[in-house]
């Protein structure tokens, strides 16, 4: 799974998935697939199988939450992502400390109560590879040779108008 941060201070947003044989290649592939436009400030990747997910529908009757057992193992940090709107992507909410995915999910639901969340994801921080600030230049900066990716490069509406005007003017003269 690939997450992208567009600018410093903004939450990371889920982008999609890349196929990769390992997590280092996943980060490079994530960059190549998702940072073509717009650019990014940071990129994270985590294996799909590390993501534990629950939807609002799955949680609706409260049975799943009630069944979560406290686990006795050592706690670790988990990233929490949620889908806040119908149309939106999942975005970063914060972190919780928990000993299992179920516990992390339960804690997340109890912690981030200020929004209506449609989909929840938790995944271990330790299983996430993040781009480092010192790599940002090499990963995310593009020279101005990419000017052709600018909309204003193709003024089709103006061009069509000019051609129509010219034709009309020509028609009147004839």
């Amino acid at each position: 799974m690939v997450f992208q941060q567009l600018a410093s201070g903004e939450p990371l947003v889920h982008n999609g998935t890349v196929h990769a044989p390992d997590i280092e290649m996943a980060l490079l592939n994530g960059r190549d697939v998702f940072v073509r436009r717009p650019t990014a400030h940071a990129l994270w990747v985590t294996p799909v199988e590390c993501i534990f997910t629950r939807t609002r529908e799955e949680l609706a009757d409260g049975r799943w939450l009630a069944g979560v057992q406290a686990s006795s193992g050592a706690a670790e940090a988990w990233h929490v992502f949620g889908k806040l709107t119908q149309q939106g992507q999942l975005e970063q909410l914060g972190q919780v400390q928990a000993a299992s995915a179920e516990e992390a999910m339960k804690l997340a639901i109890e912690t981030y109560t200020q929004h209506e969340i449609w989909v929840w994801w938790v995944f271990p921080v330790a299983q996430t590879l993040s781009s480092q600030p010192e790599e940002a230049a090499a990963l995310f900066s593009f020279s101005e040779t990419h000017d052709f990716k600018n909309q204003a490069y193709y003024p089709v509406i103006t061009l069509m108008r000019e051609i129509r005007n010219k034709k009309q003017a020509g028609g009147k003269r004839g």
Binding site: V18, H19, A20, L28, N29, D32, V33, R36, S143, T145, H146
Partner: peptide, 17 residues
Amino acid sequence: LEEDIAFANLAVDELGH
């Protein structure tokens, strides 16, 4: 597929250079 995209990025960069 991912590498098709990656490799086109490299070629686009070189063309731009």
